[in-house]
């Protein structure tokens, strides 16, 4: 299997060279964000300088980690992906407003996000669902957190440094989606199994 290596922040060219089915290893800084972060960014649209981390060219990881607070800072215990579809109503605006180049998550996203990715130059990187320990071992450190008290640790935005973090491109910047393909294929079998009921 061919492996492509990527380093954040991602350029438009790097994103454009990725295709559905590519296996990638990502290194550099990434930020996390899930339900609360998306609702907040979408509704309040804070200015980039009100957010402590750079989002231009950034990769946003849909993840609510287990983080332990220690004297020296934060330690990550487990950090796999959360279901991306829940932020489908928000993501298109966040990609466009803040200039994200990559989304890491699981389960894929819908048409609105696919369209925004095509227009703005962004890809969806599907990592290994549930592999929280394996992935935590590829997160070198938690640098800092934003909204930790207000949103709670699982919902905060965390800045993390990753090394050789594995993912598969399942939605690319040309409008292709592996998830659409799987759904269409299963639709045929589904209709057959329901015997014309659907």
């Amino acid at each position: 299997m061919d492996i492509k290596t990527l380093t954040t922040p991602l350029s438009e060219e790097a994103v454009a060279s990725l295709n559905v089915g590519d296996f990638v290893l990502l290194s550099g800084m990434i930020v996390t964000g899930r339900d609360r972060v998306h609702k907040y960014l979408f509704s309040e649209l804070p200015l980039p300088d009100e957010i402590p981390f750079e989002l231009e060219g950034a990769v946003l990881y849909h993840c609510g980690p287990i983080v332990r607070r220690e004297d020296a800072g934060y330690r990550l215990i487990a950090g796999g992906p959360t279901t991306s579809q829940r932020v489908e109503m928000y993501e298109w605006r966040i990609i466009k407003e803040y200039g994200l180049r990559g989304i890491i998550g699981k389960g894929g996203m819908g048409e609105k996000t696919l369209q925004a990715m095509k227009e703005a130059g962004c890809v969806y990187l599907h990592t290994i669902s549930g592999a929280a320990v394996y992935l935590a071992d590829r997160i070198k450190r938690v640098v800092d957190g934003w909204k930790v008290e207000e949103f709670g640790a699982p919902e905060a935005m965390w800045l993390m440094e990753v090394e050789d973090f594995p993912a598969i491109v399942t939605m690319d910047a040309s409008g292709n989606s592996l998830h659409k393909g799987v759904a269409e294929k299963s639709m045929g079998v589904y209709k057959e199994l329901l015997g014309g009921g659907a």
């Binding site: 215990i77 290994i128 549930g130 929280a132 394996y134 992935l135 935590a136």
Partner: peptide, 21 residues
């Protein structure tokens, strides 16, 4: 393959298999 490796790693290091407990 990664899922299976994760399961054995979690057991060995006594960490939660998935962050969503």
């Amino acid at each position: 393959g990664v899922v299976l490796e994760n399961i054995s790693l979690a057991r060995k290091t006594s960490r939660p298999i998935c962050q969503d407990t």
